[in-house]
Design a protein around this nucleic acid. Structure first.
Length: 662
DNA sequence: TTAGGGTTAG
């Protein structure tokens, strides 16, 4: 509740005094500053001054009674009954004031109740919706959307304030895609987006990976809508540049804003500086600091810390240490962040010992830590394969810090896995569960690798299924390793399921993997699945493996698919040999009810340049009474003709080569 | 008469 007051006071202290004076003149004895702030802060200063400066214009009776009704309702333990009493006095805007007060003070249930009441009594305005959606959206996006969808009037649904409120709540909840979709729909329905709308959407791209091009598309739309960028939007756009490492674009936006008469503030400069940190461009960073000082801006703690980041990324460790000392003397290093950055930078460039010195130093100085420093050192020790020390530090962290975030938990988990501490691994998993921290891609990855190492292959498989069902991308190397191990323990269909998950996650996969799974499937006698793999990937599978598949299928595969398999193999450029035809034909002969299939095969062969050899031919002739003598004779004679032309064509080139030789 | 942004660490 302090926030609005603090934000309010320094700007217009006189107003605050006026308010205090006003409070004594109000009828309600328990009226507090809290309520006053909440109610007056939403008015434009002009309104407040005009309405509340007693000397220039006394308040009307109705104004005062509405004021007191508002504060009474806000403070009533049973606000609905107070609301009933004042129902006739209060205007929609008064109810909106109460609604916002509930929102600011986190009275969510009351807010919903009030909103329902307002709807029932037909006392809603556009601002009711925009405020309500804003506050409700902070807690539940779906409820906010529900409110938006329930708006009966179509033109209200495209009110720019209401739309901005809805869009903002989607962005703040990380639902950028649905936000953009809804935005397009709103435009089709008649929304005229303004600078706030675009800025709301742009803000969604700040922390999004690869959000830069999409953000630039939006910026490109601005001129078509007659919208000019303002200082706020430049701030957003610069933050997007910075978080995507686009320093050139950031420079050009800074230039553009200067050309348009805006003066960059410390935030604009900070983003530009941050964009230099990607490549560690300390030269430009130094120039920037100089420019900033020349226009009278004083670098703050964040800016200095960002500069430190640039130096570290640029590998200037001596200067980094100096800057860290400066931060210390300026009182900007009272928490662990700058130390963390330096330790991380050092350890990632192989300077583990120097990182440890900083770490010890930090402890000696009594720098406040939330566990980040430990986490960084655990990761650093793991990188250097010093697992015992990593494990020990993880233990220390567990006892020292009660709260852990996902990254810390992952780091500790990793240390325990690498050190082979099963009990601790399980404890970490339980901890995650208890703290309701949902595992991310890294968690799954660490666990699966560990389970494989411990030969808990089926557990690894289950974990991978879990990972997949949670929508995480699957990494090929990990899957490939799991497939290999599942194959080894004869979990053939599990191996195939991993292969399929990888394959259907729409990525091109290494061709060796098709071959690998094919061997496993053949080994597991899963011929139908093997056939599917061959059908889709025959061109990238080696000839010996195809041969192995073909032989195995001819012997034990589903007889109804034998011809299909041969056709697919042939279609891929694989040359089927006599032995394989003989196997297929022998199988058909042993199963005379499949005579149609045999006839189809025999009829297909000559057209592709295949003929039966003499032993197979004899085999067929011996049993030809089963298949129709006449038909068999006709087909075999066709094979004979083809075989003669084949012999001729094989000998001809030899002959001509010999002739050319002469 | 209501909606928007911004800088730092693993």
């Amino acid at each position: 509740m302090e926030t609005p007051l603090l934000g309010f006071e320094p700007r217009c202290p006189h107003l605050f005094i006026t308010n205090s004076r006003l409070s004594s003149s109000l009828p309600h004895p328990t009226l507090s500053v809290r309520t006053l702030t909440a109610t007056t802060v939403v008015k434009s200063p002009a309104t407040v001054v005009a309405a509340e400066a007693p000397r220039t214009k006394p308040h009307s009776k109705s104004f005062l009674s509405r004021k007191s009704a508002i504060s009474e309702i806000e403070q009533s333990p049973d606000f609905l009954s107070s609301l009933q009493r004042f129902a006739r006095v209060l205007k929609v805007q008064d109810l909106n004031v109460i609604l916002r007060d509930f929102g600011i003070s986190g009275r969510w249930q009351d807010l919903i109740q009030l909103f329902d009441w307002m709807q029932q009594h037909g006392k809603v305005s556009d601002s009711t919706y925009s405020s309500c959606i804003k506050f409700v959206g902070a807690k539940s996006v779906s409820k906010a959307l529900e409110i938006y969808q329930s708006i009966p009037d179509e033109s209200t649904k495209t009110n720019v304030y209401i739309c901005n409120s809805v869009l903002s709540c989607l962005v703040k909840n990380g639902k950028l895609d649905s936000c953009i979709k809804l935005f397009d729909q709103m435009k089709r329905d008649g929304l005229k987006p303004d600078v706030v709308t675009y800025n709301t959407l742009l803000a969604g791209f700040i922390k999004v990976k690869n959000g830069f091009p999409k953000a630039m598309d939006l910026v490109g739309e601005l001129p078509h809508n007659g919208i000019k960028m303002d200082g706020v939007m430049y701030g957003t756009v610069l933050a997007i540049c910075a978080s995507n490492g686009r320093c050139e674009e950031a420079e050009s936006f800074i230039q553009q804003m200067k050309d348009e008469g805006h003066s960059p503030n410390i935030y604009h400069y900070s983003s530009l500086l941050n964009s230099y940190s990607w490549k560690g461009d300390y030269k430009k960073a130094d120039e920037l600091m100089a420019e900033m000082k020349s226009v009278g801006l004083v670098p703050n703690k964040v800016m200095m810390t960002t500069l430190l980041k640039v130096y570290i990324k640029g590998g200037l460790f001596e200067r980094s240490r100096e800057l860290l000392s400066e931060l210390e003397s300026a009182g900007y290093a009272e928490n662990e962040m700058p130390y963390c950055m330096l330790m991380d930078g050092l350890s990632k460039t192989g300077k583990l010992e120097e990182a440890m010195t900083i770490f010890d130093d930090m402890k000696v100085k009594g720098v406040k830590s939330d566990g980040y420093a430990n986490s960084i050192m655990i990761a650093a020790l793991c990188r250097s394969k010093r697992f015992e020390e990593a494990k020990q530090l993880a233990r220390d962290s567990e006892t020292t810090y009660e709260k852990c975030d996902l990254v810390m938990l992952n780091t500790m988990l990793c240390a325990y896995c690498r050190a082979g501490e099963m009990e601790s691994v399980m404890r970490m998993m339980k901890k995650m569960d208890e703290q309701a921290v949902s595992p991310d891609y890294n968690t799954f990855h660490i666990l699966i690798k560990y389970f494989i190492k411990e030969k808990l292959h089926l557990l690894a498989y289950q974990t991978l299924l879990d990972m997949h069902s949670k929508g995480h991308r699957l990494e090929e190397e990990l899957c490939s390793s799991l497939i290999y191990h599942l194959g080894k323990v004869r979990a053939h269909s599990e191996a195939f399921s991993v292969y399929n998950m990888l394959r259907y996650s729409k990525r091109t996969i290494c061709k060796d993997l098709h071959e690998k799974i094919l061997h496993i499937l053949i080994h597991g006698k899963l011929f139908k699945d093997a056939y599917v793999v061959v059908k889709d990937n025959a061109k990238v599978i080696s000839q010996p493996t195809l041969k192995r598949f073909c032989k195995a299928f001819m012997v034990s595969g589903n007889i109804n698919l034998v011809n299909d398999v041969l056709k697919v193999l042939h279609g891929s450029g694989y040359k089927i040999d006599q032995v394989q035809f003989e196997m297929a034909i022998a199988r058909y002969i042993s199963q005379p009810d499949k005579k149609e299939l045999l006839l189809q095969l025999l009829q297909w062969m000559p057209g592709q340049g295949y003929v039966v050899d003499s032993s197979t031919r004899n085999l067929i002739l011996k049993q030809s009474h089963l298949f129709g003598r006449q038909l068999i004779a006709e087909i075999l004679s066709k094979h004979h003709i083809v075989s003669r032309t084949m012999v001729r064509s094989r000998s001809e080139p030899k002959f001509s080569r010999a002739q050319r030789g002469k």
